[in-house]
């Protein structure tokens, strides 16, 4: 009986990951250094078209990023301004026939999460007609920003992979800026609950021992 249940659960989990086949796994970094590197690449490459509408420049500073960097990125915008793209929606519609999506929640909004974004960024290749295509999201209008399809140099590819990893780490933080705080609190909560449960067990035993 138990074995059958187990088989069903295994089936279930395989199925749950079926949509994520062909994605490469990325180790999301939670260090300030990696997230700041990702932010730099984002501001340099992605920011020209993409927004982070739930993020303010002040949030980056508040998180601990270098003040000068943040000032450089925001230019003459206020510290509490939303991180909007440098391209207007009209200009984007003209160039791509589509407004590039907001990236605030991107690592949560796709099956596969961070792995999806990572694989997508590295998923570009040159097809037999010499056109750039993407095997993760074939309908994409975005050009190969990181340039993975244009090089076969191992060292350069490794650098691109690292860059993509940093972008994903940054976007994962953007999608859930309280994650580290949540997990830290979670350990205390669980430790407290375990002690409490042991005590409640002792109380219960003590009370029930009156019955004998």
């Amino acid at each position: 009986m138990k074995r059958h249940l187990l088989a069903i659960f295994v089936l279930f989990s395989i199925q749950a990951h079926a949509g994520e086949e062909g994605l490469s796994h990325v180790q999301v970094q939670t260090s300030l250094a990696a997230i700041q590197r990702g932010a730099e690449t984002f501001m340099g490459q992605c920011h020209s078209c993409h927004t982070l509408k739930y993020m303010h420049y002040g949030d980056l500073k508040h998180f601990g990023m270098d003040q000068h960097k943040v000032d450089e990125w925001r230019g003459d915008q206020a510290l509490d301004a939303v991180i909007s793209s440098q391209m207007s929606d009209e200009a984007a519609l003209q160039s791509f026939a589509k407004v590039p999506p907001d990236l605030s929640l991107m690592t949560k909004a796709r099956e596969g999460g961070p792995d999806y974004v990572y694989s997508y960024l590295l998923g570009y290749y040159t097809d037999k007609d010499g056109m750039t295509a993407n095997h993760v999201f074939p309908a994409t209008k975005m050009p190969d920003i990181l340039g993975g399809s244009m090089t076969s140099d191992a060292a350069q590819l490794e650098a691109i992979r690292k860059q993509a990893g940093d972008i994903v780490s940054f976007l994962t933080w953007v999608a859930d800026p309280h994650e580290q705080e949540r997990q830290r609190l979670g350990y205390y909560v669980l430790a407290y609950l375990m002690v409490l449960t042991v005590l409640l067990y002792l109380v219960k035993n003590r009370i029930w021992s009156r019955l004998k």
């Binding site: 409490l196 409640l200 219960k204």
Partner: peptide
């Protein structure tokens, strides 16, 4: 007492 112990879990 028993319910609260279960609640802990």
């Amino acid at each position: 007492a028993k319910d609260f112990y279960g609640l802990g879990w």
